[in-house]
Design a protein around this nucleic acid. Structure first.
Length: 771
RNA sequence: GGGCUCAUAGUCCAGAUCGGUUAUGACGUCGCCCUUACACGGCGAAGAUCCGGGGUUCAAAUCCCCGUGGGCCCACCA
C-alpha cells in the first residue's frame, strides 16, 4: 500500500499553514468558567534587538505549561502582554537619536520611546507567534496602555487612602553637576588619589585616644557613631564608651560591627551620613539619626558649621588644616582610593538624602512568608530565593523615580499649602501635563496646583499583572472566576523583584495570594556557560534560527536540553541537530501511514512487550508533566521512539505487518500495536512539539486537532524492562555476526534464538531471516 | 565579602531523595553498510583518574567534611 505521507522529511514550512489552521479553528480561545487554569504570563520587555534566545526558550516552555494543562482537561487562560515601562527604552532612545532625556521636551521624548517600543514589540510578537505560543494574541495588553496605567494609579490611590504610602528621606546617589539622582547602574568606579587622614578622637572620661582613619574628614559633623570589629581586642575595654568627635565636640558611642576590618587603618571607622554605601547601611541598621552635611547644590550645609557653603573638596582641605592646628592629626597618607563617580559627568558622586515616596513592606514580611509557604514552587529549591530575600528586607519600598517613561504618580500639590491632592481612581492621569482634576485643595481650598513630575518604579506596574489579567476593579464577575490565578511562570533572576512585589501588592490589595504555583526557570547562557550580552558579542538571535529550523525543532531542543530550574547553554549547532529526531518521528509515521488504522487486535508477545514499555513511557512522562518539567518527557520519548520502538519493535514486526508469512490476525495485531504506539507518542509529544504532532495526527488519525485531545493515562501494570535489554542484545549480536561474515542484513542466516526470547521467536526469525 | 547553585568523555545531559556487577543517552569524531519508513538513515568503534583532598562503609559518581573552579543574585570597603 502506498504511504499517505509522501515527503521524506519534516518540512518546517508547514508550520505556517498549521498556525493558520489553529487560528481558524480557534482551539485556544478562552471563556471563563467556574474552574480555570490561569497563567500569569510574564510580559516580555522589548529592550532591543535581538530578543534573547533564552527568553524564546522560556516562552516556549511556558506554552508547554498551557498545552499540558489543556490536555489534562483544564480550561486554560493564557494572556499575552508586553512590558513597556522603564529605563531600558529611555537609554535605547537616547542612544538611537543621540539626545538626552532631560534636555528633550518630555512629550517629544515619550513619543520617540513609544515609536521605538512599537518596532521592537512587533518583532517580538512575531517570534512568539511563530514559536507556536497558544496565548491570547488577539487582545494582548501593554503595560503602558491607558488601561494598564490607570490600574497602576488606582492601586496607588487605594493604598494611599489605606495609609500604606508615605514620603520620606532616603540617601540617593547624587550627581551635583548634572543636578540629578543617578541609578546604581550609572555609577562607575575610578581609582583616584586622595588623602587618608588619621585623626585622634578622645575617649570620654579617660586619658586615652582612639585613632580613626578617613578619606572624608569634612563629614566629621555628620559622624554619629564609631565602629570596631567585635573580634578586635584593642578596643574591647572601650565598647559602649562615649567618644568625642574633634572640631564638633559631639559625643558618639563606640560600638562593634562586623563590617569594620581590623587590618584597615586603625581598625576603627567613623560612620557619617553619608561617606559611602556602608554608612547608609549602618545608619539604617543602627537606626542612627542622619545629618545632611551636603546639599543639593553640592555644597556643605549649615550643619557643617563654619565650613558651610564650601564644596566638599574645599571643606576637606580646610578641615585638615584645622585638625592639624589643633593637634588632632596623627598622620596623613597619600592613597589611591576606589571612588564611585558619575558615569556622565565623571565627578565623584555624593550620597544625599532626598524625599521619595515609599510603600510600606516591612510590616508585611511575615505575612508574605506565610503566603510563600502556601505556594508550590517548581522546582521547590527556588522557594529559598524568596525566603532569603524576605529575611533581608529592612527598608520599605521606594516607589518614585525621576524618570519619564513610566506610569505617572497621580498627585497634584497645592500651590499655596503644598498639600498633596489625590484624584479619584479609575482614570489615567498625567500630572506633568494635565490640568488638576480637583477644583479646590482638600486642605486649604486654594485652586492652583502643581503636578507631580515623577513616575513609579516599573515594578509598581508589573506587580499587578495578575490583577490586570483577571480584570480587577473592572469586571467583578470575571475577577471572581479567575482570581487567584493558577500559576506564575518566570525567570529565576527576578524572584526578589517581580515575584516578591506581586505577592506584596496583591496581598495588600485583595488580601489573597495571586497564584497557587510558581514555576521558575534558569538563565540562558552561551555555549561556554557565560552570560549572553550584546557587548560581548555572544548573543544568539533566535529569529533566524527559528526561521531556518522551525519552531518545533527549537522547542524540542529547549525541552530536551534544559533541565528545569537550572541554567542552560545555548548552542546553535545543538539546536540544529535536534531536528534529526523530528525527522525520525516523521519517517516512523511515514512507514505507519502505509497501513490502515486498526483499532483493536490480539497482541502477540512482541506486541505485548512494546505496549508494556509504552506504558512505562507514559508513566515516566506523567511524572515530568505533573511538575511541568519537560526535560523528562522529551528525553524519555526520544529514547523510546528511537532506540526501542524504531530500532527493535518496528524491525521485528515489519514482515508481519506486511503479512508476509503470517496470518491476517497476526498481521492486524502488529498494525494495531504500531498505531497504538505511534498515536500515544504523538500525544505525549504534543505539548512540546505542537506543529509536527498535530500535522501527523490529522494525517493519520483524526479530522480534528491533537490539541483538543486528553493526555494518555498510564495503566497500572507490571513492567518488563529486562526483556528490552535482552532483545536489544540479541539483535546486536545477529547484526554483528552478519557483518563479520560479510553478509547483507537481508541474507538468510543460521542462528539460534535463546530460550528467554522464545515467545518472540517467530518475529525475530522473520526480522533477521534466520533459518 | 554574603547567599543560591553547579562540577560526569571534545560538547550537552542521566545517574538526585533508595550507596552495590562492564557509569545512561544525545551531539560531534572515525570505520563499515543503499537493509521495500528514514543516508536528516543503519550497524559498529574510539573517547571519562565521575574537579581535588580527607572521612563513613565490605562497597561511593552517589552520603559527610574541607578545599578549588564556574554561573547568577545581593553587597562593595573607611
Amino acid at each position: 500500500m502506498e504511504p499517505k505521507i509522501k515527503e521524506k522529511a519534516w518540512n518546517p514550512e508547514l508550520e505556517k499553514k498549521i498556525l493558520k489552521d489553529w487560528d481558524e479553528e480557534k482551539i485556544y480561545e478562552f471563556t471563563p468558567t467556574e474552574n480555570n487554569f490561569t497563567i500569569d504570563t510574564p510580559p516580555p520587555y522589548p529592550s532591543g534587538r535581538p530578543w534573547h534566545i533564552g527568553a524564546a526558550a522560556h516562552y516556549s516552555q511556558i506554552d508547554m505549561i498551557a498545552r499540558t494543562a489543556r490536555m489534562s482537561g483544564e480550561n486554560v487562560y493564557f494572556p499575552i502582554g508586553i512590558d513597556r515601562n522603564g529605563l531600558p527604552v529611555e537609554l535605547y532612545t537616547e542612544k538611537k537619536h543621540n539626545i538626552r532625556m532631560r534636555e528633550t521636551e518630555r512629550g517629544e521624548f515619550l513619543n520617540l520611546c513609544r515609536v521605538a517600543l512599537d518596532d521592537l514589540e512587533a518583532e517580538m510578537l512575531l517570534i512568539m507567534k511563530n514559536l507556536g505560543i497558544s496565548g491570547e494574541f488577539a487582545n494582548y495588553y501593554r503595560t503602558d496602555s491607558e488601561e494598564y496605567r490607570s490600574l497602576t494609579q488606582s492601586t496607588f490611590i487605594d493604598l494611599w487612602k489605606k495609609g500604606q504610602i508615605y514620603l520620606a528621606n532616603r540617601p540617593n546617589n547624587y550627581d551635583w553637576v548634572s543636578g540629578t539622582t543617578i541609578a546604581d547602574a550609572e555609577i562607575i568606579y575610578q581609582d583616584l588619589p586622595t588623602k587618608l587622614v588619621y585623626m585622634k578622637f578622645k575617649i570620654k572620661d579617660t586619658e586615652k585616644e582612639i585613632i580613626i582613619a578617613s578619606t572624608r574628614p569634612e563629614l566629621l559633623c555628620a559622624c554619629k557613631t564609631i565602629i570596631v570589629n567585635p573580634d578586635d581586642q584593642r578596643y574591647a575595654p572601650f565598647i559602649g564608651k562615649k567618644i568625642i568627635v574633634p572640631i564638633t565636640n559631639a559625643e558618639v558611642e563606640l560600638r562593634t560591627h562586623h563590617s569594620a576590618q581590623q587590618e584597615f587603618g586603625s581598625g576603627a571607622v567613623m560612620v557619617c551620613s553619608y561617606g559611602d554605601q556602608n554608612d547608609v547601611a549602618l545608619f539604617r541598621e543602627l537606626e542612627l539619626e542622619e545629618v545632611v552635611a551636603i546639599g543639593l547644590d553640592g555644597k556643605m550645609t549649615e550643619a557643617a558649621g563654619e565650613y558651610a557653603g564650601l564644596k566638599p573638596k574645599q571643606a576637606r582641605t580646610k578641615i585638615i588644616e584645622d585638625l592639624e592646628t589643633n593637634g588632632f592629626v596623627e598622620k596623613i597618607e597619600d592613597i589611591v582610593h576606589r571612588t564611585p563617580v558619575s558615569e556622565r559627568s565623571k565627578i565623584p558622586i555624593e550620597i544625599i538624602p532626598m524625599e521619595e515616596y515609599y510603600l510600606k513592606q516591612k510590616d508585611s514580611v511575615e505575612k508574605i512568608k506565610k503566603l510563600g509557604q502556601e505556594i508550590t514552587f517548581y522546582p521547590s529549591m527556588h522557594k529559598q530565593i524568596l525566603m532569603n530575600w524576605l529575611e533581608s528586607i529592612n527598608i520599605d519600598w521606594p516607589i518614585s523615580r525621576r524618570r519619564y517613561y513610566g506610569t505617572e504618580i497621580p498627585i497634584w500639590y497645592c500651590k499655596s499649602c503644598s498639600e498633596p491632592n489625590i484624584p479619584e481612581p479609575g482614570k489615567y492621569y498625567k500630572p506633568w501635563s494635565d490640568k488638576c482634576p480637583i477644583s479646590n485643595c482638600t486642605k486649604c481650598g486654594a485652586t492652583e496646583f502643581v503636578g507631580e513630575e515623577r513616575t513609579f518604579d516599573t515594578w509598581m506596574d508589573s506587580s499587578v499583572s495578575p490583577l490586570f489579567v483577571s480584570k480587577f476593579n473592572k469586571d467583578s464577575e470575571f475577577f471572581k472566576k479567575v482570581y487567584p490565578t493558577t500559576i506564575r511562570p518566570q525567570a529565576k533572576d527576578i524572584v526578589r523583584t517581580w515575584l516578591y512585589y506581586t505577592l506584596l501588592r496583591c496581598d495588600q490589595l485583595t488580601g489573597n495570594k495571586p497564584w497557587s504555583q510558581a514555576w521558575i526557570m534558569g538563565y540562558g547562557l552561551d555555549e561556554k556557560g557565560l552570560k549572553m550580552s550584546k557587548s560581548k558579542g555572544n548573543a544568539i538571535d533566535p529569529l533566524p534560527v527559528i526561521e531556518k529550523l522551525g519552531a518545533d525543532t527549537f522547542r524540542f531542543w529547549s525541552a530536551s536540553e534544559i533541565n528545569h530550574g537550572y541554567d542552560f547553554r545555548c548552542n546553535e549547532q545543538k539546536i540544529e541537530s535536534t531536528k534529526k529526531f523530528l525527522s525520525k518521528l516523521w519517517n516512523v509515521s511515514r512507514f505507519l501511514s502505509s497501513f490502515p488504522v486498526i483499532n483493536s487486535g490480539k497482541p502477540n508477545p512482541t506486541d505485548k512487550w512494546i505496549l508494556s514499555e509504552l506504558n512505562n513511557l507514559v508513566k515516566e512522562c506523567k511524572k515530568g508533566y505533573d511538575e511541568y518539567n519537560f526535560f523528562v518527557p522529551a528525553i524519555a520519548v526520544r529514547e523510546f521512539t528511537w532506540n526501542v520502538f524504531a530500532a527493535h519493535y518496528i524491525e521485528m514486526v515489519k514482515a508481519r505487518a506486511y503479512g508476509i508469512g503470517f496470518s491476517d490476525d497476526e498481521r492486524d495485531a502488529a498494525i494495531f500495536t504500531l498505531h497504538k504506539t505511534l498515536s500515544t507518542i504523538l500525544k505525549l509529544l504534543a505539548p512540546i512539539t505542537p506543529f509536527i504532532t498535530d500535522h501527523l495526527w490529522k494525517t493519520l488519525y483524526s479530522q480534528s486537532s491533537i490539541h483538543i485531545e486528553q493526555q494518555v493515562e498510564p495503566e497500572d501494570e507490571q513492567s518488563e524492562n529486562k526483556l528490552t535489554e535482552e532483545i536489544s542484545e540479541f539483535n546486536s549480536k545477529v547484526w554483528n555476526e552478519k557483518k563479520t561474515k560479510g553478509l547483507s542484513l537481508k541474507d538468510s542466516f543460521s542462528y539460534p534464538v535463546p530460550k528467554s526470547l522464545e515467545p518472540f521467536k517467530k518475529d525475530l526469525e522473520s526480522m533477521h531471516n534466520l533459518i
